[in-house]
Amino acid sequence: MSRVLSQLNLALSGMVDGVLRSVVQVRDSARGAGAGTIWHNDGLIITNAHVARGGALQVALYDGRVLNATVIARDDKRDLAALSIEANDLPTIPLGNSAQLLAGQWVMALGHPWGVMNATTGGVVIGVGKNLPELPGMRQDWVVADLHLRPGNSGGPMVDVAGRLIGVNTLMTGPGVGVAVSVDAAKQFLRDVLGTPTADAVTDSQSQYV
């Protein structure tokens, strides 16, 4: 293989390995419900509201531990949820800045598609913003990329080439297009709700949730 390709591959797998340590699986009643991302080393995890719907949630960490999780906050309208687990010194993911994303930049999404654990998919940023014509009525700050999200990716991280969180994988609008709630929107959500859980009715859409 050429030198450049080998270097690229090494860099990609190295970056993914680093990020995976902060990716969790969220389970309800012993079934995988989706993924989650460790936001804070004292046990704060971000995921989708639609992943955190069931009762008796548990979180499986990359190191193998399975811990009970509490839902601190859930916002169905933004499709975000904050969970808490009893653990310290967890590997957190560095936070990126979705407002600075440019079309064409390479991003990766991690999670557990169809139950395949700790898997990744990559592509470029198609666009960022509040208006997605194929998601009418869901005005939210999105990051859209041409990678393959599948059920089990929800709540997992979308990261840039530096392994920084730039979105929370949320849904797919086609087999080749993945949509994430932007990290900027997730930051705002945590600012708004930490300490105050909210729950609004979700607006229906025709897109398939992952």
Binding site: L8, A11, L12, L102, G104, Q105, W106, D160, V161, A162
Partner: peptide
């Protein structure tokens, strides 16, 4: 990591051009 940054930035630069 830098080669990834280069790839990503070059792609974005091509788009901008």
């Amino acid at each position: 990591m830098s080669i990834l940054q280069d790839l990503s930035n070059d792609l974005a630069a091509a788009v901008q051009t």
